[in-house]
Amino acid sequence: MDCSYFDAGVCRSCTLMGVPYGEQLARKDGHARDLLAPYGDAIWLPPVASAESGYRNKAKMVVSGTVDAPTIGILDEAGRGVDLRECGICAPGVRAALPVLAAFVTRSRLEPYSVPDRRGELKYVLVTHSPDDELMVRFVVRTRAGVDRIRARLDELLAALPNAVVVTANLQPEHKAVVEGDTEIVLTAQSSLVMRVGGVPLRLRPQSFFQTNTAVAESLYEQVTEWVDAVSPASVWDLYCGVGGFALNVAAPRRRVVGVETSTEAVRSARATAAAAGLPHVAFRAGDATAFALRAKTTPDLVIVNPPRRGIGADLSGWLEGSGIPNVVYSSCNPNSLSHDLARMPSYRIRTGRVLDMFPQTGHLEVAVLLDRV
């Protein structure tokens, strides 16, 4: 893949840009295998490749510049806006929306926030694209006045961007490196975006986490479901469950599944999907995954963990080590933290593993492993 922004030196976020894709994939696969070799004589499946471009279903874009000439992209080292509305790794549906949103900024007179001057209203636009070609658009503003400006011209935005089924305003008034605040104001009748992945219509609410690469996420869910079905547990915990992707995909008759997630928005989404699908044996709890495990009076037959980059940490690793649970599926976006966690769990060995390239053109990767207790 070629990128004019990378070639011009204005954006270097994609650190592997220009490296042949086959070489990128081989590097990631080899890195994961080498790093995790001490934790079992694993069977490694072929890595899952991604489309090289157009794979990102979500764009978190900084808004800068001026009302009449807004930039949508990133900031340079001096805090000035760099426009990336043609970013090639974004899904075509996202790229098509960005010029419309830039025009809306001008029409609604939403002053872009200036980091150097600590002045302005609109900080970010966050756009998520679904497999059904629908959009969730979120504006991050500093004040209620910004919300009012968006609401006043919402009909114009929906006419110009008719596939925007969810539009929200998020309040983040502080001058700090935080994308969004706690307050989310839904401006449309619909409050969740349906992400159809692996035959499951996941409902994504505004502040819920979802995998960046829809096609590779589907492969990840399929792989984990295959491993879980092969073990055939009667009960499963899905810790760090997000909107319930793993829990809902591994659901089966007479299999009890519990998902645990700190985000109440994500739990609401997961519960809505389970109810619509008629899955009475799947339940979701809002709370900390480690605290849930430590408080539990019983244990399941299998645990799925899909933590953030820092991994599951010493407390949950230690609990799993002493739990007696026969199998664990660990999906990780950071092989280094996975390696650290496995070192704390010597009773488990990797039976099989697979690298999934969730983030082409970057050094990041997803790796999933099935662990057996020995």
Rank of each mutant, 00 (worst) to 15 (best):
P300N: 03
R196S: 04
S4I: 11
P116L: 00
R205A: 06
A177D: 08
P92R: 05
A230D: 14
E226F: 11
S13T: 14
S108D: 07
T66S: 13
E218L: 06
G313P: 01
V305C: 15
V197A: 01
S331Y: 09
A159H: 14
R349I: 09
W227K: 03
H281T: 09
S108W: 10
P47E: 07
A91S: 15
F284E: 04
Q24P: 00
V186G: 04
V257W: 01
A272K: 08
I185D: 09
V63C: 10
T71M: 12
L84D: 12
R373A: 14
D341C: 12
S4T: 13
L302N: 09
Y21A: 07
D372F: 02
V374C: 05
V194P: 07
G65A: 05
R344D: 08
E180W: 14
K28D: 05
V82E: 02
A283V: 11
A314F: 10
M358F: 12
S331F: 08
A96Q: 13
A266K: 13
P112H: 06
H364Y: 12
A234V: 13
S331I: 14
C241I: 03
H281G: 11
P38S: 01
A283D: 15
A314Y: 07
T352G: 11
V165D: 01
M136G: 11
F209T: 05
L342H: 08
T290S: 14
F6L: 05
V147T: 04
I89D: 06
G40W: 06
L294C: 12
V257R: 01
S339N: 14
D341S: 07
T362H: 13
S269V: 03
I325S: 10
T71K: 14
V105Y: 10
H364K: 14
A286Y: 11
E261W: 04
K60D: 10
R95Y: 11
D182A: 15
W227R: 07
G30T: 03
R285D: 11
V243P: 10
E77R: 15
P46I: 04
L248R: 02
L187I: 01
V167T: 02
E184A: 01
A97H: 07
V303H: 00
P360V: 02
V355R: 08
R354Q: 13
P173A: 01
D229M: 11
Y124W: 12
P46H: 05
A252E: 07
A230G: 14
P335N: 12
P300Y: 05
L294Y: 09
P46F: 04
L45V: 03
A159Q: 12
T66K: 08
P92L: 07
C3S: 06
G81F: 08
T106E: 06
S332F: 00
I89N: 08
I43W: 12
A291E: 08
S4F: 09
A145W: 09
G363P: 03
F292R: 02
V282A: 02
I350R: 06
P92T: 03
V260T: 03
V179F: 06
S323K: 11
R373Q: 15
T71N: 13
V197L: 10
A215T: 14
V355Q: 15
D68I: 03
